[in-house]
Simulated assay, not measured.
Amino acid sequence: MQTTFAGHCVLCENDTTFELKDSKTYRSMQCIRCGSVSRNRALWFALNRAFPKWRQLVIHESSPGWDIVSRRLAVECTHYVASQYEDDLPLGHLVTGTKLPCKKYQVENLEKQTFKENMFDLVITQDVFEHVFDPLAAIADIARTLKPGGSTLMSVPVVRRFNSSRRRARLVDGKIEHLLEPEYHGNPVSGDGALVTVDWGYDISSQLSNASGMYFVMQTFENMDLGIRDECNQILIGYKAPLPDIN
């Protein structure tokens, strides 16, 4: 299997080489210049195509990390707000002086945020919704914080594809109950990792729409010239607006 590909990175905006760090999956395809992976570039491509004036929007990014997407959003977005969940700090607490690119963030639980209604034009999450214990409550609260006509943009690994979504772990009386073997992903604020709570299928769009009242579109991007290919990572855009009238 070929492991290096010449192309152009939409994130660092350079001609570059994309290299598979794991020769078995395109999910590991990394830009040798900026370190971005395919899901970063897919989300960035979607952001610029769907929201070309994003730099002037009021944007909330939940759980930003060290990646170049979060770095560019923090620097280039005029009205950027970051949040992280930390169970040992009170909700609404402002953490300053962090080494994360966002420099500061507000402690928030996506399921019950302290943000007021109608605050944001756009809410961005990168690989967050497979880690939320109650993702349906989270998307409903995201809708609450969006202005009328606002949107949410998210990358989510849809690992189940045409199979129904399934729960891996849940909270029962405040304790974690594992329904499947525990699986963890990286966590920007904890070395313990982030527990995967849901394996999503293509029904994710309907699940999120039913819970939030927003309508969702799910897109899969593939362009090897831009280093965008991933076996299970989809980009979802939710709109806090009525469906277009096509009558």
Rank of each mutant, 00 (worst) to 15 (best):
T4Y: 11
T4D: 13
F5Y: 13
L11H: 00
L11Q: 03
F18C: 03
K21N: 14
S23L: 13
Y26L: 13
Q30E: 15
Q30R: 15
C31P: 01
C31R: 01
G35V: 02
S36G: 05
W44I: 04
W44A: 02
P52Y: 08
W54I: 07
Q56L: 12
I59D: 00
P64S: 04
W66C: 06
I68M: 14
S70E: 00
T78I: 11
T78E: 14
V81N: 08
V81D: 06
L91I: 12
G92R: 04
H93D: 11
V95H: 04
Q106R: 12
N109T: 07
L110H: 01
K112G: 11
T114Q: 06
T114V: 05
T114S: 08
K116E: 14
K116S: 14
V132K: 02
D134C: 13
P135L: 04
L136R: 12
A137S: 12
D141L: 00
L146T: 01
L146E: 00
G149C: 07
L153Y: 00
V156K: 02
V156P: 02
N163Y: 13
N163D: 15
S165G: 10
R166Q: 15
R166E: 13
R170V: 13
L179I: 12
L180W: 09
E181L: 15
H185K: 08
I204T: 07
Q207T: 11
N210F: 11
G213T: 05
Y215N: 09
F216R: 05
Q219Y: 10
E231G: 10
E231N: 06
K240T: 04
I246V: 10
